[in-house]
Amino acid sequence: MREFSVPERLGGLGALVAVGAAVWPTVTARTGAGLPCPLRTLTGVPCPACGLTTAAVALVRGQVETAFQANPLIFGLAAFTAVAGPLVALRAAGVLKPPRSWSSARRRQVGWLAGLTALASWIFQLHRLG
């Protein structure tokens, strides 16, 4: 079994999120169940991922502005999702080489980028939700 790269894994997550976003409105309409943010429920402080469910549902429905207003991170996940399918297919067909492991310097860079992205999202959510 081959290893999947980080973009492929994020794309797979995005595909699962898209399926969930397509099904979630039906589940909530029939059951009345919601999906509150645990951090916001316990502390009143939103987390960097607050609004991602709303954003995913809006994006699946084609409501781009609503998705952006809920959480712009959804567009990054959507980009990984759009790239991952063809990437996995091309690697499976042997057109592209399998992914290589990242160096420790590259991992550190991506860690910083992920942290800064989460911080930017958190600032956005704090501003949006007061």
Score class of each variant (00 low, 15 high):
residue 52 L to P: 02
residue 109 Q to R: 11
residue 53 T to N: 09
residue 46 P to A: 10
residue 129 L to G: 08
residue 113 L to N: 06
residue 30 R to G: 13
residue 118 A to I: 06
residue 57 V to G: 05
residue 86 P to N: 10
residue 34 G to F: 03
residue 27 V to Y: 08
residue 24 W to N: 06
residue 80 F to S: 08
residue 129 L to D: 15
residue 48 P to Q: 04
residue 124 F to R: 01
residue 77 L to H: 01
residue 15 A to K: 00
residue 66 T to A: 14
residue 12 G to C: 02
residue 66 T to M: 06
residue 35 L to I: 07
residue 71 N to H: 09
residue 57 V to T: 14
residue 124 F to D: 03
residue 128 R to M: 05
residue 47 C to S: 11
residue 118 A to R: 04
residue 39 L to M: 04
residue 85 G to K: 09
residue 83 V to R: 10
residue 98 P to R: 02
residue 66 T to C: 05
residue 13 L to W: 14
residue 65 E to Q: 14
residue 92 A to L: 11
residue 120 A to S: 15
residue 109 Q to V: 08
residue 66 T to P: 04
residue 56 A to L: 08
residue 114 A to Y: 03
residue 123 I to G: 15
residue 85 G to W: 12
residue 1 M to H: 09
residue 77 L to S: 01
residue 36 P to D: 00
residue 127 H to R: 14
residue 15 A to T: 02
residue 108 R to G: 09
residue 44 G to R: 03
residue 38 P to L: 11
residue 26 T to Q: 14
residue 9 R to G: 14
residue 62 G to V: 01
residue 51 G to I: 01
residue 7 P to Q: 12
residue 27 V to R: 06
residue 26 T to D: 13
residue 129 L to T: 14
residue 95 V to Q: 13
residue 73 L to Q: 00
residue 37 C to E: 07
residue 74 I to L: 05
residue 125 Q to P: 08
residue 86 P to Y: 09
residue 83 V to P: 00
residue 68 F to Y: 09
residue 96 L to Q: 11
residue 93 A to R: 14
residue 71 N to T: 09
residue 21 A to L: 05
